[in-house]
Design a protein around this nucleic acid. Structure first.
Lengths: 123, 123, 123, 123
DNA sequence: GTGGTCTAGACCACC
DNA sequence: GTGGTCTAGACCACG
């Protein structure tokens, strides 16, 4: 269900967090569905439970899931993370545009490039 | 000439590196122009000379400048960093597209958003 | 009669306890009235009987109800929990004042705020 | 500067967090002032550095401080935490009012009680 | 020196 | 069984 890339420089908990964000936003995990328990996922990925714990804590803090002590972690209602969804992707887009503009890359060039990447990605 | 944002999470050397990339690519600094010395820039920005050193080393390694021992650091010929220019911005673009696709953001939505950011940026 | 909020961070037994405190103090449940049995309430709320048991145990311990083995749980006489009523709400108030004072919030500001919350609440 | 109460049921990191919130809001720690380092504070309070780390991480996340890797943690500008200041104290106040209303405590009684607590506190 | 991440292993509260 | 907190100790990146 989830795969960790140790070559990736980003911390593990952030990779886990991102993977679940994707699964939730795309609807693979539905609201009120239960996520794997901290311990079981830790074993499955052979990483420390604390690391999973941290990923889940962040996901709760940003409204993607809610936690019931003694029961587990559950996907939150869509209304809780709608705002975050926007933020995540468009913050990155904004940074990209800023950088591109600073470097003198034209709007047309960037748009065209992104369009073609999209097609490669969806193959 | 250069401003550091301590609230930015990225390391300082990376910020310095990025600033010089921009200045070189946009032609503010011309080929064979001399860059500020490590020591003077370190004093000006009141940061550790090692940090500047590292930024310059990376810029040299990616072909943006060349070093003459005992004389200083100089902007490289355009042919040296043409390739890098592409790489920097389009690598970021690719990552963005990948993430957006994973999250189910449509090509049209992303393109439109980027277009409008461009206009805001250029005001 | 009672509703549990799983998104609430407090433990379930505490929510159940609080709900009954309110019902008893406001007189919705009269002295010597019988409370729902542990088992039936557990089924109704679909939670573990142990959890209800614990809530009832606490309510007994603070004098809100008394238990007759084999017969059930009954609301205690008002004299038994009069003192608690004070304690519950005023302990919280005291903590609030302490925190507010530490943060430099003026007496007037806090009083005014609480007054207006009261009016919102009673709409 | 900071004291931990082991009898308090709340987690240590939360106590530390609260103490610094107070110090910052009351202006004892001024914007851009440096906080004790994670390690030094850990030694001073004889608790694990991870615990301090967590408290600081939360304070950063809520805008009370900003972190510069390799340098330390610094108090953020007032504008960053103005909103939080409101939230902290008035959320607690609101919960109190709700509970009091549920229990049938009159507005006047609560206000009077809070007023008198304020005076005790300021002795 | 600083903060950030991770592991291993423990203990607690809750259900 | 679940999540939450904490410790001890390690390693890394940054300045």
């Amino acid at each position: 269900m989830i795969h960790i890339d140790y070559k990736d420089k980003r911390p593990i908990y952030e990779q886990v967090e991102e993977k679940f964000q994707d699964l939730i936003i795309r609807g693979v995990l539905k609201p009120d569905e239960r996520l794997p328990s901290v311990r079981s996922l830790a074993i499955e990925l052979s990483i420390n439970p604390n690391t999973i714990q941290r990923a889940y804590a962040q996901l709760e803090q940003t409204g993607f899931l809610y936690t019931v002590k003694g029961r587990g972690n559950f996907v939150a209602a869509e209304s809780e993370w709608m705002e975050q969804k926007q933020k995540i992707i468009f913050d990155e887009a904004r940074r990209l545009v800023r950088r591109a503009a600073n470097m003198g890359v034209s709007k047309e060039e960037l748009l065209e490039r992104i369009g073609s990447y999209y097609e490669e990605e969806c193959i």
